[in-house]
Structure formats: C-alpha cells, structure tokens
Design a protein around this nucleic acid. Structure first.
Lengths: 337, 337
DNA sequence: CATGGGAGGTTGTACGTATAACGCCGTCCG
DNA sequence: CGGACGGCGTTATACGTACAACCTCCCATG
C-alpha cells in the first residue's frame, strides 16, 4: 500500500492479475467453475492476497440488496443473560453467513431513540426482546422481518415470537415452596412493564392459590441490587404476617433480598427462603447458593435466530416454548427449620 | 406499501413530490438552503413521511466512502464490565453520528475467526481490547484506524492506546493490605495472556517487595468462579505458610476465593482477607462485601471512542491513563483479627 | 467442411445515494 | 437595454460489486 492511497478494489486486483474485474468477482465469489481456468483463478487469488484486498461490503450490500446483518435489540446488558442470548444468536447467524449487531436499548424507557439510525448498519432483519421497551415503538411500523423474544403472541403485530416457558418456571417455584410447607409469600417483582413479568406474576399467583390458606403480597423494584434491597426491606418490615419465602423475578433482585435479610437479622434459609430466576454466576457466588430457575440464554438466542432465518426464507418458524428448569440449592428450606 | 413491493427509494419520493431525485437528497440531507424553496422542501419531507422512506445505508456508505460504524472487539461478555465499555463508547459515538458494532471474541483464544467477516458491517475503525486475544491476529495487518484498550504502548503496532492505570490499582491494593499488617500473600491471577495482567502482577510484586519479610505466591485460573474455587482451594491447602490475604485479578476470581475459604472453614476477613478488581454488582452482593478496585468501564469506553474519533479526524488522541480507585469494604481486615 | 458447443473469458449494467456542474428565468444595476 | 446574478432546480456521474449477456477461440462431430 502506497501511503495516502485508498483500499484496493476488485479492479486493482484485476489489473494486478491481468484479468477483468468480472473475473475477480467470479473467482473470489466462488462461482468460477467452468468459467475461469484454475491457473487464472490462482493468479487472481494471489494478487488479492498480495494487495490485501477486502471486498467493500457497502458495495456488495448495495448490489445484492441484502446485508446478511441482523439487529438484536435487548434491554441494558447489566447481567450476562442477554450476553448469552447474543452469543447463541451470533453462533447460529455465523453458521449461515450472517452477522449480528447489538442494540442495547438506552436505560429503561428512555427517550425513544431510533435503533435503526444508531446502529448504522443496513439490516436484513430484527430480533427484539419485549423488555427493550424504549426501542419498540421505533421498530413498529418498520417493514423489516421481525422476531420477538418473550412477547405476547397476540400483541406482537403478527411477528413471530420465541418464548421461554416462564409460566412453567413460576409453577415449579410455587410447587417447590408449597411442598416445603411455605404458605406466606412475597413476590419481589421487576418494575418493568413487560408481558414476561406479567405472566410470571399471574402463573405464580394461580399456582399458589391452588392451596387454601396461602397469602401472596407483591412489591416492585427496578432490576438492581440496591433497589431490591430497599423494596424487600420495606416489605419485610411492614406490619402483618411476615412472609416465609420471597419469590424474586430475577437473581439480581434475589441478591437484594439477601442483603435485606442480613440487615434484618433473618437467616437464609432458616428464617426466610428466597428464589430467583436466571441462574447467573451470581447465584452460586452468594451464600447460601440461590435456588433459582435456570434459563438457557444461549438456546434462547439460537431459537430466536433460527426463527428469524426461517422468516427470511419464507418458512414458518418452529413452534414451542423453551423449557426452563428449577435448580434447588441452599436458599430454600422448610419454614422455621 | 403495496404488497410485494420493495422499500421506497429517494426516487420514489421524488416522483411523489414531483421533483428530481437530487432535490430529495438535498432536502433530506439538510443542504438545501438557497437551493430549494421552503414550500418544495416541505412537499418533499411530506412525501418521504407518507412513503415511510428510509435511506438505503448501503448506498449511502458506498457513495460517501465511510460508514460511520465502529467495531468494538472485546473478550466474552461474561461480566458487565465490557457491557459498560460498550455503553460508554456507544454514547460518545452516537453524539458524533456513529454507530458501534460489538464483536465478542469467541471464548478465549478460539480458532482465530475473522471479526471483519463475522461483523458484516462495513467499518470506519476498530477499538480492540487487548484481552480479545483470538481476534487480534486477524485485526493486525488491516489498515483500518485502530485504538487498543489496555495494551502495551510499545507493542501495539503504533496504534493509539487507552489504558486504565491498573498498575496504580495494584499499588493501592498492596499498600492497603500492607498497612493492615499482612505479610503473606497469594496472587490469584487470571489465566489470560495479556499485557494488562502482566502489569498487575509486576506492580503488585514490586510494591509488596518494598516491605522486608513479605512473601508472595501466585496461582492462575481462567476467569470463572468455579475455576477460581479450584485454584484457590488448592493453593490454600498447600503445605507451608498459609497466606493471610488473597489478591485477585478480578471480582469473579474473588468470588471463587470466597467459596474456597468457606469450604476450608476460613472466615473472611478474620482468617483471610480478599481483594478483587472491577467492582461488579457481584462485589456488594457477596458477604462480606468485597474490597476491590473500581474501574470506570463507561469512562474507559468513552475515552477509547474519543481516541478513535481523534484518529479519524487526524488529531492526536489525548494522553493519560484513567485513574482507578480502591473501594475498601468488609473483606479486608488486619490478619488474625 | 460446416456446425455445434464448451471452455475461458470480457463487456455492460444496475443497485441507491450524494454532489458537482449546469441550466433557466426574473430582477436589478450600470 | 444588456448582462450579471441569485433563486430554484435539474442532469449527469461515481462509488465497488455481482452477474447477465455476450464474444472468441478451438476442438469434436456429422
């Protein structure tokens, strides 16, 4: 590369190899069988290597009318959960020659910035978590192929949806705690308006109500340890029957509940059982280790990407929720043990 | 939009507004002052709105020869640290009309996949963490403007570097523990070949050596709680003088050290002091809360992006490491307290 | 010997945009 | 009254690629 010169184009390669630009495109595009001789092809490849040629993706995208780039819209990346979703989605995408661009919705329901303008890349499709509330209004009305993660199948504008079987997770938590003998519950819920969290709450309430004599209170907090601490401490200190178990919408909230329990001198699990959802690394770092619902984030991302690829190819995405699994650890025990 | 039709182009807008395509480009590009009348401009804007026109970014990128897209190459997103870096970088980028695409290097030093092929987007520049070892070889030799995060200023191919003052962090840890009276140390180091971790180790050793009679052993583990648990347990159970303090390269490693201490019946901080680096949410979730070095991940990302923007504009990036701050919490105390 | 056809290319064009260069028309000044 | 100039546009072109269509040998075949 001479200084000041720009990147080499396919025409530069052609000149160096003594062929036409079209021949370069054919060879490097792998479509030269029966069109270009092996010796010429090798000469082209060598010239490309020497010049350090990289195809101009903007030009290729323009020509082909597609970019093989998918936008993944997620809420903030404050836990590794959506990192896992990204990893799974990116893996499947790579297998099909697609790239994935991440758009973490600015904190919460911020000023609805435009993900399409912000992620400058030209896009072939979008996968969006229903929790990325701020960005969703901007996405609606765009005619890009869309797959929603964890979204109300009825209210997703006809877009395909991929869901974790989160209602079943709530069922497993409820049955586990009921079997241990708990009757008085606190639901420490995420203060995010999202279909997912509504379903969790409804499923939890429904399954707890199957046993007579149970009580269920709720309190809400933003998904952060400090906010959860504040909310849990207030709820535990409130007058009336103290719950013997706290069901949290998220492991981070559970960590806040741990801190509240410590402040109030309550031992876990003897005085108070706590459950989470996600199974983050955090879950086994705290003492006692957290009983939680394991969500397979990578599988979630994989299924989301598979669904989008199906949409892009005109196929119908596979049906079926992704199963989740209760992992029983040390934070749950019979009440008053 | 009639069904089956493709996205509207600027020419469609022009037709609808009864003007030329060039006029549309001028109006929508904001360069119409003195070239197009206000009434015509308004007509164009209305037509664009009615048709739901979005400029084709591939075409724009091709025409302008730049994409306003930056690639951020990071190691795996298993903690929120690099999520913070991304957030900071993306904020500064957005202020300058740039987008950021994330490339998490496949686990560790995986098969050196090509970040440029994987992230399909056409790029204007690259910011790369020196910890993303696998991807770095692919980046080298590419003539894209490059900024390295936490990299040896000497060995970064002349690329600009932005560093956290990690050596000073190690100094603060060393002086804190020495002041408490500790003399026998274990360094639980990250098993990642990276300049950053070498510097931490060197700085730690140098500052501890300033006090006569100190001892320092090292053990290495991949950055995960379970691996750290294994390594720390082995090191603590080894014959010889047991360390009274463990200095960890990372909060995740520190969490592993907590678990090792619990298994061995050692109380923190009475029997064993532990320190980390990063100040993740995890640090205040575990009990006792972790004394650690707070790294400002978002500022790190901001400075990285500012440096890259400077490079792109031909300016010289600002000098100076980013200061870090020891946060003293409950995991450190005088030995044998 | 004419004809077909395959191997090995080349020429030409379009993707959608931004912008340089060029009108055209009315007005105003010398 | 000529021409310069400003306001309001238009026409033409280039960015780099992928591929359809074409072209030219040369050999085999009837």
């Amino acid at each position: 590369m001479a200084p000041g010169s720009t990147r080499p184009t396919s025409r530069d390669v052609a000149r160096a190899a003594g062929v036409s630009q079209a021949a370069v495109s054919l060879v490097l595009g792998g479509k030269w069988r029966g069109r270009v001789s092996e010796t010429t092809a090798e000469r082209v490849r060598e010239a490309a290597r020497d010049l350090g040629y990289r195809p101009n993706l903007a030009a290729r995208n323009l020509r082909l009318g597609r970019t093989r780039t998918i936008l993944l819209v997620v809420p903030a990346l404050t836990t590794e959960f959506f990192a896992g979703v990204y990893t799974g989605a990116a893996r499947i995408a790579a297998e099909h020659g697609f790239g994935v661009v991440l758009y973490p919705s600015p904190e919460g329901v911020g000023p609805a910035r435009d993900p399409f303008h912000s992620a400058q890349a030209a896009l072939d499709g979008v996968i969006a978590s229903s929790m990325a509330a701020g960005a969703l209004t901007a996405i609606r009305g765009d005619q890009l192929p869309l797959v929603m993660l964890d979204s109300d199948p009825e209210g997703s504008l006809g877009a395909a949806t991929v869901n974790l079987d989160i209602a079943d997770g709530a069922r497993q938590v409820a049955e586990h705690l009921l079997a241990l003998g708990h009757r008085h519950f606190l639901h420490l819920a995420a203060a995010i308006p999202s279909w997912t969290f509504e379903i969790r709450a409804r499923s939890l309430a429904a399954h707890l109500a199957q046993v007579p004599g149970t009580s269920l209170n709720s309190t809400h907090a933003p998904i952060s340890i400090e906010d959860a601490l504040t909310a849990a401490e207030a709820a535990l200190a409130a007058p009336g029957a103290r719950p013997t178990a706290i069901v949290c919408d998220d492991d981070l909230l559970a960590a806040g509940a741990y801190k509240a329990a410590r402040r109030l001198g309550l031992r876990i699990p003897d005085d108070l059982s706590i459950t989470g959802i996600d199974d983050l690394a955090l879950a086994t770092a705290i003492d006692p280790e957290l009983t939680t619902v394991r969500l397979d984030a990578e599988l979630f991302g994989e299924r989301g990407m598979q669904a989008l690829l199906a949409v892009l190819e005109g196929r119908t995405p596979a049906e079926g929720d992704i199963p989740v699994e209760l992992v029983v650890r040390g934070s749950t025990a019979p009440p008053g043990a």
